[in-house]
Design a protein around this nucleic acid. Structure first.
Lengths: 355, 355
DNA sequence: ATCTTGAATGATAGCGCTTTCATCAAAACT
DNA sequence: AGTTTTGATGAAAGCGCTATCATTCAAGAT
């Protein structure tokens, strides 16, 4: 017998002696059926190895049970973490995560949005607020909820963090320790408003303290540890090197520490380093990294929740700003100008971080 | 006028004065049409803001242009890297990546496979060969190409790496340096055949050298840097601690180095550490990590290529084993038994790594 | 001039499911 | 008993597209 490979809903219906509609209901709203018919349908379904066809279902119902996420890159602890959190939260509600990355290329982002929208998603998560006109237009006519992360805009839902404040906190911490010449390693600024904001925040803090963050003390690097090392190297080789460096991401800061140490420059005694993110590793390196904690996983979780709520029509354009905070560990110490040789007294400063 | 929100194919057809079939062809096989009609269709499509409906297309054509990937966790450099590589390779061919993770839980993997299959994917990528009966059964009746990564089986395509050899290489390197008492920090073994194989390989190398890797010298930990530190701590606190430690993943090895250093134990002078993976960071820490290089990105790239080839019917059950190799850096040195105090002579050993 | 052939396009039957709307029996009211 | 209500099920119309087959018409072959 030339048996169909895959059992369809109608096959189950025929086998169970009911109409297709009943089988459909058995899957979606079981409580509408008599326990008896329900059982009969289930038996037939199991017997035939019936597996519903998601595409047919999506076409008929208009819901795909899929959320799209477009991140700058997957190859980053940060975004991996966020996606992991989103995925877990979504899976709990039966949703799937469709991911794409644009590698810091606005046109690639447009393309990704277009593809995901065409493919059919019930919601879309993007990173940052800066994007091309094309992408913005697509989003406006998308017809599905959108949530922005890290940096958002008022015209759609957002789960954000004050990146400017992050830079500000990092810089202020160093200023408070007496540092006057502070450098920063940041990611490439074009199409990365998170890094732009962090840099701006740091610069602002310095200005407020009557200091300056000249371009020469800022090094733009690719988002890797090697980038951190390279940036650090560049800053240290300046005629007048900084006494403290802010890493636009923790990975940079960790790279800075490595680079300094490999040059025989003690951290934090001769160079203070602060990061931003607080990735897992930061607490475990030596010296443990002082950094600004960004609740990455929470961002992912809330992006999922926000999207789901909007899909259900419960909320609209919900804005959430998550708190961040400075976590003082061992990579920062008083600047030389203030406490020329007293390394000991700085230890207590660092220890304040562990109440 | 109660205008439809979304333009459909028929709307374009009507506007362009052609049949739906022609519009469909204009999108899929443009060369079948007269340049004139093609242009007319494109104009109408643009004018109406037509965006094809992926679900309808999928239902009608049976192709979803989506590949599913199920990894143990997204929150890992390794898997993030692999997915990144897959995603890039797939995007180039117009495919999307649907990701799921199972957090080392076989039942969750089954569920993920079921959902992805139901959702509709044209191919599936999984990690490792060990899985529940249920999952295996689902896969067998999936009806779409499957590719396994890291560890595979003969009954479906696989892009693998010899994990046993990885452990073997790491151990042999240490044995060659004169170490007799070697410990290992591995990930939790249940449902992780990569770690199992790496441990087995290390153990085998030790046996071949007339040595032993007793359970007491093996510490199972969660796949984080904190896990590496904890494992290292456990091993170092043994009555007779090892003179060298193998990290089942680089993150463990890096954690071991940190833990040792924080206890004032010099690496590699007093403790040698080898990792497996060769993540970006490994080359940049101090001392740079000696490790077994696993071509992670290449695995992802090949998984994508293998799946695509199988979808096109070009190949079937293609097996690819990627070469791996020991990368000697600075974290390993001669064991105390052989060269009691000559740290200098070990430096040259390390430098061999950079030809 | 007639017949083939082939390229371009049209007509249309599904793809497998959801979802009104209709139906019908049984239960709950007058 | 007669009527309304309720709950469970069935009938069937799409969802928007692809793909098969049929049709048309002009160009080349006879």
């Amino acid at each position: 017998m030339a048996k169909r490979v895959k059992a369809r809903l109608v096959d189950v219906a025929r086998d169970a002696g009911v109409s297709p509609a009943t089988v459909s209901r058995a899957m979606a709203q079981p409580d509408l059926l008599t326990p008896d018919t329900l059982a009969r349908v289930h038996d037939s379904a199991r017997k035939l190895g019936y597996r519903p066809d998601g595409m047919a279902r999506a076409l008929a119902s208009g819901r795909t049970m899929t959320i799209g996420a477009i991140v700058p890159t997957l190859d980053s602890t940060i975004f991996a973490r966020v996606l992991q959190a989103m995925q877990s939260a979504l899976a709990r509600e039966g949703y799937q995560l469709l991911v794409a990355s644009h590698e810091m290329n606005p046109a690639a982002e447009t393309e990704a949005v277009r593809t995901l929208l065409t493919r059919g998603v019930d919601g879309l998560m993007l990173v940052g607020a800066e994007r091309s006109q094309d992408t913005a237009m697509l989003l406006r006519t998308a017809g599905v909820p959108v949530v922005l992360s890290w940096v958002g805009t008022q015209d759609c839902a957002a789960v954000t963090v004050d990146n400017r404040l992050a830079g500000h906190l990092a810089a202020r911490h160093l200023i408070g320790l007496g540092h006057r010449r502070i450098g920063m390693v940041v990611g490439h600024l074009p199409f990365n408003d998170r890094q732009q904001a962090r840099l701006a925040g740091a610069r602002q803090a310095l200005h407020e303290a009557g200091l300056d963050l000249p371009g020469a003390l800022v090094s733009e690097q690719g988002l890797t540890m090697a980038g951190g090392r390279a940036g650090c190297a560049r800053l240290l080789e300046l005629g007048e090197p900084p006494s403290a460096i802010i890493g636009g991401i923790d990975l940079f800061a960790i790279g800075c520490i490595q680079e300094a140490q490999s040059r025989g420059i003690a951290v934090p005694e001769a160079l203070s380093v602060v990061g931003i993110d607080d990735i897992e590793m930061s607490a475990h390196i030596t010296p443990a990294l002082t950094t600004v904690m960004i609740p990455t996983a929470r961002i992912g979780q809330l992006c999922a929740a926000t999207l789901l709520a909007e899909i259900k029509g419960e909320r609209r354009h919900e804005q959430t700003e998550l708190p961040i905070e400075l976590v003082v560990r061992q990579s920062t110490a008083a600047g030389r100008q203030v406490l020329p040789a007293k390394a000991a007294s700085t230890a207590s400063t660092a220890r304040q971080a562990f109440p």
